[in-house]
Simulated scan of single mutants.
Amino acid sequence: MAATPRTVTIIGAPLDLGQGRRGVDMGPSAIRYAGLEERLASFGCRVVDRGNVTTSEPEALSVGDERTRFLPEILEACSRLASLVAEVVAEGSVPLVLGGDHSLALGTLAGLRAATGRPGGVIWIDAHGDLNTPATSPTGNVHGMPLAAALGLAGDAFHHPGLPLPAVEPERVVLVGVRSLDPAERALIREKGIRVITMTEIDRIGIERAVLEAIDRASGPGFVHVSLDLDALDPEVAPGVGTPVKGGLTYREAHLACEDLAESGVVGSLELVEVNPILDRENGSAAIAVELAASALGQSIL
């Protein structure tokens, strides 16, 4: 991405049905308000904003199955997002998806699979694994399941005609910055051979080595996507997230990770999720999201 400025198409996905704390639906607006378009344009990107996909309001809905709260409505929103992402890829543009809770990643990945015709790879930068299933989730919140669903491992409940699955291959999935896993997620990681680079490992080997390995493992045919949950950063850096976990990435580690991703030239799409302005301080987490997007899309100091 760093070598040749491209057209970047922003898609907002103000989905907040996948978790239990209100406010994350305002994340796309907060990130835009923090100067996203102007920042990307400042280093040569042509920016197109396709607005927001339509999502349902939880107040107007019944929860449904407690093991997969609001799942039908989430799948409908993800299907609309998948169609938009596929259109953007077909136009030769870089999709930049703004969330919203992390369940929307299922739509992004399904759209990339539809556009390229095959499963791809994903670098999942997150404090959590998001590898629960309806049978193993301790909460029933779908934002803890999208990666399992994208792998085709979440069961029949996630089948939807607008979401071709599996969207990613397990050997090309790399989780970076993880520090909170449920027991069933650990079992699934071992069973499928998914690479997880925990914060402990990052402390030992450094963020650059971790990201370079992630790029190497995720690379291949189809697509390489980066899904960045702002809770990957330490809460002292990015407090405006719904499920903060102490001991996350520093400001500079997060920037270096994004700079390495840009320099690799293999990443074709990006999403920034779980920014919650209600829990933030002076829109600071959204501002950091803008800065990280710029680094991942090729902005450099020199």
Rank of each mutant, 00 (worst) to 15 (best):
A2P: 01
P5R: 00
P5I: 05
I11G: 09
I11A: 07
G12H: 06
G12V: 08
P14F: 12
L17H: 10
G20S: 15
R21H: 12
R22C: 08
D25V: 09
M26C: 00
S29N: 14
Y33L: 13
G35T: 13
N52M: 11
N52F: 13
E57H: 14
E57W: 05
E59R: 08
L61W: 05
L61Y: 08
V63Q: 06
G64M: 07
R69P: 00
F70E: 00
P72H: 08
A82N: 03
L84D: 12
A86C: 14
V88L: 15
G92D: 15
P95I: 07
V97L: 09
L98M: 06
G99K: 03
L106N: 05
G107P: 02
V122F: 03
I123F: 13
I123M: 11
I123S: 14
D130L: 08
L131V: 10
T133N: 04
P134C: 09
P138G: 14
G140H: 09
M145H: 12
P146C: 04
L151D: 05
L153F: 00
L153M: 09
G155V: 09
H159N: 03
G162V: 07
P166F: 03
P170M: 06
P170C: 10
E171V: 11
V176H: 10
V176N: 06
V176F: 07
G177R: 12
R179P: 10
R179H: 08
S180P: 00
P183Q: 13
A184Y: 04
E185Q: 13
E191S: 13
G193M: 03
V196K: 05
I197K: 01
E201R: 15
R204D: 14
R209Q: 07
A210Y: 06
R217H: 01
P221Y: 01
F223Y: 15
V224N: 12
V224R: 06
L230I: 15
L230T: 11
D231C: 11
D231V: 11
A232Q: 04
A232E: 01
A232M: 04
L233W: 13
P235R: 09
V237K: 01
V237T: 14
G240H: 14
V241T: 15
P244C: 12
G248N: 00
L249H: 08
C258D: 09
S264M: 08
V266W: 01
V267R: 00
V275P: 02
N276D: 10
P277Q: 05
I278V: 07
R281L: 11
R281H: 03
E282T: 02
G284D: 12
S285N: 06
A289Y: 00
A289D: 07
A294I: 12
S295Y: 09
L297H: 11
L302R: 02
